[in-house]
Deep mutational scan, measured.
Amino acid sequence: PKDQAKKEIEKALRNGDEEKAKRLAKKYGISDDDWKELKKRVS
């Protein structure tokens, strides 16, 4: 599910692991808009 994916990506971003977050986003098909939203929430 997308919500689970977003949680994992957000966690990776919080850990400062943007490479992992990007890989997860690609793997789960997270859209650019969702990606920006996640980045905003974390920063």
Rank of each mutant, 00 (worst) to 15 (best):
A12V: 05
K2S: 14
G29M: 08
K22Y: 06
L13M: 04
R14A: 08
D32R: 04
V42H: 05
S31W: 02
V42I: 13
K36C: 13
K11Q: 15
D17S: 03
D34S: 03
D34Y: 04
L24M: 05
E10Q: 05
K27Y: 15
D32A: 08
R41P: 03
K39Y: 06
L24I: 09
R23N: 11
K7A: 14
K40V: 08
A21H: 00
K27A: 10
D17F: 10
P1K: 13
R14M: 09
A5M: 11
K39R: 09
P1Q: 14
K20L: 15
D3N: 10
E8K: 06
D33E: 14
E37N: 06
L24P: 00
W35Y: 15
I30R: 00
I9T: 01
K7P: 03
A12G: 01
L38G: 01
L13E: 00
D33S: 10
I9L: 03
D3G: 09
D17L: 07
K27R: 09
R14G: 04
S31I: 03
K20H: 14
K6I: 15
R41V: 10
A12Y: 06
D17W: 09
I9F: 01
E8Q: 09
E10C: 03
K39W: 04
R41Q: 11
E18A: 06
K20S: 11
Y28Q: 03
K22V: 10
E37W: 04
N15R: 09
K11G: 08
E8Y: 05
E37R: 06
K39E: 10
W35V: 08
K11E: 15
K36M: 13
K26H: 10
E8M: 11
K22L: 14
K26R: 10
D34P: 00
L38H: 02
R41C: 06
E10W: 04
W35C: 03
K6M: 15
K27F: 13
S43P: 06
W35E: 01
D34L: 06
E19N: 08
N15M: 13
E19T: 07
K2M: 14
D32C: 09
A5V: 12
P1I: 15
W35L: 15
A5G: 09
K27L: 14
K11M: 14
K27S: 08
I30G: 00
K6A: 09
S43Y: 09
K20P: 01
E37M: 06
D17R: 04
K11D: 15
D33M: 09
A12R: 02
S31Q: 04
E8H: 06
I30A: 01
W35H: 01
A25T: 02
A21R: 00
K7F: 09
E10T: 07
K40A: 12
D17T: 02
K6Y: 15
I30K: 00
K40P: 02
K2W: 10
K20F: 13
G16M: 04
Q4A: 13
L24V: 03
A21Y: 00
D34T: 06
W35K: 01
E19R: 09
E19H: 07
K27C: 14
K27M: 14
A21F: 01
S31G: 06
S31N: 08
A21V: 02
I9R: 00
K22M: 10
E8I: 07
K22W: 06
G16F: 04
W35D: 00
L38Y: 02
D17C: 05
K20R: 11
D32N: 07
L13I: 05
R41T: 11
K22A: 10
R41G: 10
G29Y: 04
E37S: 05
R23H: 11
K6G: 05
K40F: 07
K27V: 09
K39D: 03
S43N: 12
L38V: 07
S31Y: 02
A25L: 03
L24D: 02
E18D: 07
I9W: 01
G29V: 03
G29L: 06
K7W: 10
G29C: 11
A21L: 02
K7E: 13
G29N: 12
K27N: 07
K27H: 12
D34I: 07
Q4C: 11
K36E: 15
L13K: 00
R41F: 05
K26Q: 12
R41A: 13
R23T: 10
P1E: 14
K20G: 13
K7Y: 08
K26L: 11
K7M: 12
Q4K: 12
K26F: 06
E10M: 14
A25D: 01
K7Q: 12
D34N: 03
A25R: 06
K27T: 06
E37Y: 04
L24A: 02
A25G: 04
A25M: 05
D34Q: 08
G29P: 02
E37P: 00
K40S: 13
A12T: 03
I30Q: 01
K27Q: 14
E8N: 04
E19W: 05
E10G: 03
I9G: 00
L24Y: 02
Q4F: 14
G29E: 12
A21M: 01
A12I: 06
L38M: 12
D3K: 09
K36T: 10
K39P: 02
D17M: 07
D33A: 12
K6D: 05
D34C: 08
D34F: 05
V42C: 06
K22C: 10
E19G: 07
I30S: 01
S43F: 12
K36R: 11
R14Y: 05
A21I: 01
K2D: 13
A25I: 02
Y28R: 02
V42A: 10
D3T: 11
S43L: 14
W35S: 01
Y28T: 04
I30P: 00
E19Q: 10
I30E: 01
E10A: 07
A21W: 01
W35T: 02
K6F: 15
R23D: 13
A5N: 06
K26S: 09
L38K: 01
K2V: 13
K2Q: 14
V42Q: 05
K20C: 10
K39I: 15
D3I: 11
S31K: 03
S43M: 15
L24N: 01
D32V: 08
K36G: 07
E18K: 04
A12M: 10
Q4P: 07
